[in-house]
Write a protein that binds this DNA or RNA. Sequence first.
DNA 1: CTGTTAGCGCATTCAT
DNA 2: ATGAATGCGCTAACAG
Lengths: 367, 367
Amino acid sequence: MTVTLADVAARARVSPATVSRVLNGNYPVAASTRERVLRAVDDLDYVLNGPASSLAAATSDLVGILVNDIADPFFGIMAGAAQTEIGGPGDGSGRAGGEKLAVVCNTGGSPERELTYLTLLQRQRAAAVVLTGGAVEDPVHQAAVSAKLAKLADAGTRVVLCGRPPLPDGEAVVAALAFDNRGGGRRLTEHLLSLGHRRIGYVAGPLERTTTRHRLEGHRDAMRAAGLLGGGTGAAGRPTDGYDEERLTVHGPYDRRSGYDATLELLRREPEVTAIVAANDTVALGACAAVRDRGLRIPEDISVAGFDDLPFSVDAVPALTTVRLPLFEAGARAGRLAMGKENPPPGGIATIAAELMVRGSTAPPRA
Amino acid sequence: MTVTLADVAARARVSPATVSRVLNGNYPVAASTRERVLRAVDDLDYVLNGPASSLAAATSDLVGILVNDIADPFFGIMAGAAQTEIGGPGDGSGRAGGEKLAVVCNTGGSPERELTYLTLLQRQRAAAVVLTGGAVEDPVHQAAVSAKLAKLADAGTRVVLCGRPPLPDGEAVVAALAFDNRGGGRRLTEHLLSLGHRRIGYVAGPLERTTTRHRLEGHRDAMRAAGLLGGGTGAAGRPTDGYDEERLTVHGPYDRRSGYDATLELLRREPEVTAIVAANDTVALGACAAVRDRGLRIPEDISVAGFDDLPFSVDAVPALTTVRLPLFEAGARAGRLAMGKENPPPGGIATIAAELMVRGSTAPPRA
DNA sequence: CTGTTAGCGCATTCAT
DNA sequence: ATGAATGCGCTAACAG
């Protein structure tokens, strides 16, 4: 019923092997016979059987891109950029030549689903896998992921990390592109400190996420350097200077609502807060709404800052002070790395700079 | 080197067929032998070979979700919702049982890439395909897509449309979930008219897109009913009542920048405009920025409205008047339809209602 | 309930 | 430059 390679071969009066060769283009074929074959393909409307092809070749043209939340532009931008590099521009014929099938898989931030997708990709003998965004820090899960990635790499799958810190045992990955979340977080808080803020509330992301931790650490680095914090991360705790960091930190998911609720909570705990730093721009938007609903002005009464510099942040009112991450560039680079179109950075690890964007949502505190 | 089903069979002292049966669970197997097989699978760390399995079974567990722009939450929300229904909750084992691999493919709005992805999915013998968002109206391309979908359906792939109008020849699709873009557009403009607006600028989406056309038609329906428009779509043109619709309509992509630029252009063409209707919320955000940059207030000087009611719209300042589309619900339903978990609507077509959300960005024009 | 037997459709040796 | 033959790893009848 369905037309196969043999049918094409028969119609073109060549052997199946020859058809295979022109389709894959990895082998010299006389121009005339190629023409004949191609015509037969079109005549018969033949479409290669992917599974059969993958079985015989022991590899597929599938490339998986894992994201934590597909509804979040943070991931959408990276994934889209990666897909651009992987899928190729398309030849316009719709015939789908040597293209890779770049597909994005939404883990929803769930470790189980991440593992499941990885297994599914492994099962499909994926050509490459790109993991985007922060990792869950649970040691058991991390070990499981590392083991899975090692197996994937072993089977010839190229593994690339984008916006995620390198693996403890980085041998399995082609490259890791990590954002400088810590440095960005530090510079953002330094900016607030330089404006004169001292009581700064922090709406952090979900617990046990590398992104959350690094941004928060950057914030606390800056606070500590300003003498506003007691014992630092991992250091022996000594009494804090007037208020403790835990009280001014609230954790929650990376969404608008979390920013809203957490900000109300911070305002309740510490009415004297003059600035709110949010885990990311989406959270910051929620924070802004909460501040306004409490009848306070931004930035006159309270400064608010975000992270990522998503496209909508510049249109917020007032425009959001934030930390810019080159999401598109990083995603595109990850895509090229996954395709072997670009050489990995030295040591397989690259840290991507984060740039402070000062805009209207931050200003000196009231006297 | 790589462990196969036969290895598992040998270790469990059963036949390969039995292993296959426990793995697929579609066949009665004694509990004791199942245990034995499962243990062997774990011991050997066996992972099913997807291509081989798909080849033999003549179907794969891949489900494709096509989106126009993965960086746009409009698509991200639908795709994420669909994926939730398709991927299943994950069994937590990471072993990946009878799961489907829901993957999203980003066409970037390009007809060629859409076709390419469809071919790739066809090649993979995908179990189902979900097409989201508006379609390109070019007849040649539409015919090509229809033909491709017919072939997919023919090969047993379930095709579902989500947020896209039904195909002319709808036989190929399981179901089409269409948004009532026209009705939503009409009600939005009626709202503005009822506030007293008469000179309304329209920032439309890209040309030749169903979504663009339907929303614009709804707008013009309302304008015409109010006697503010000349000859309508397809009707014989008669002189318009004071100004022509073309002059108050600017087309552009569905992005922030388009909204910004188009709004400046509208303001230049017709300084007396009292309201701007944008193709969607993202565009509306750009429009707001342009209005402000021109020194005008929202909504006192100019009202602005969007479409979709994306999560950030309620946090805009002032909150955006818009038309709410139940993106998540629609995506989830499309996912269930694709999995055959839900019965198609009568005739395979369902129109999904759009709800007007009146918020702070619209108000009566100045006297 | 379990084993045996045949392919699924293609890529790839090895010849020629 | 092309053809012939082999097997990739699994599922699906069919037996039993």
